[in-house]
């Protein structure tokens, strides 16, 4: 194709039109995406705030008042955590069906309740948690035979992890 000035201008205009069209399509997509986000924001405000349960309430609810014995469960946590915002922990309880983890010194002591299903490969989980201050972490496992085992580990926290 021979490209003279007139054709070049026409091509340029066509290209610009394509860009403008794509731009408007993008803007439309952005608006669509923004709408659900706004809905989500409204839902957040209405999200139920669960009451802060005490350590005793957590244990009572989990064990139903049954006796809890030491041993049979391993709780791995660092001795000293420089940053309380993210403290790696690992809980391993062979034969457990559920594991409760509590950070006893936090404003809301609950950390997690893990239930293991039929496809679980072990009774072990590792995660990262927040600790507000130096405190004991407690893990309680509900064993398959209905008994409860507990392990406690003290973690010294240099910088707390709950803001404030």
């Amino acid at each position: 194709m021979e490209l003279n000035r007139r054709k070049a201008i026409a091509l340029g205009a066509g290209g610009a039109a394509v860009v403008a069209f794509a731009g408007s399509a993008l803007a439309q997509a952005a608006t669509d995406a923004a709408a659900p986000a706004a809905d989500a924001a409204v839902n957040t405000a209405a999200a139920p705030q669960t009451e802060a349960k005490t350590v005793e309430q957590w244990i009572e609810e989990f064990t139903g008042g049954a006796e809890v014995t030491e041993g049979g469960i391993t709780l791995t946590a660092p001795e000293i955590a420089e940053n309380g915002n993210t403290v790696p922990i690992e809980v391993d309880a062979e034969g457990a069906s559920e594991i409760l983890v509590l950070a006893t010194g936090n404003p809301t002591p609950g950390v997690t309740i893990t239930k293991f299903g039929e496809a679980a490969g072990s009774r072990k989980i590792a995660t990262r948690i927040r600790l507000a201050e130096t405190q004991d972490i407690t893990a309680i496992a509900k064993m398959d035979d209905g008994s409860f085992k507990q392990a406690t580990s003290n973690v010294k926290v240099t910088i707390g992890g709950c803001g404030g």
Partner: peptide, 28 residues
């Protein structure tokens, strides 16, 4: 879940750190 069979089911509380990281085992 693995093929509809439950592996783990965790209830998480605010004490879980930003960008929740969870490591666990599954039997295949």
């Amino acid at each position: 879940e693995l093929n509809g069979k439950n592996v783990i089911d965790m209830q998480l509380e605010p004490a879980i750190s930003t960008n929740p990281y969870i490591e666990f085992d599954a039997k295949v």
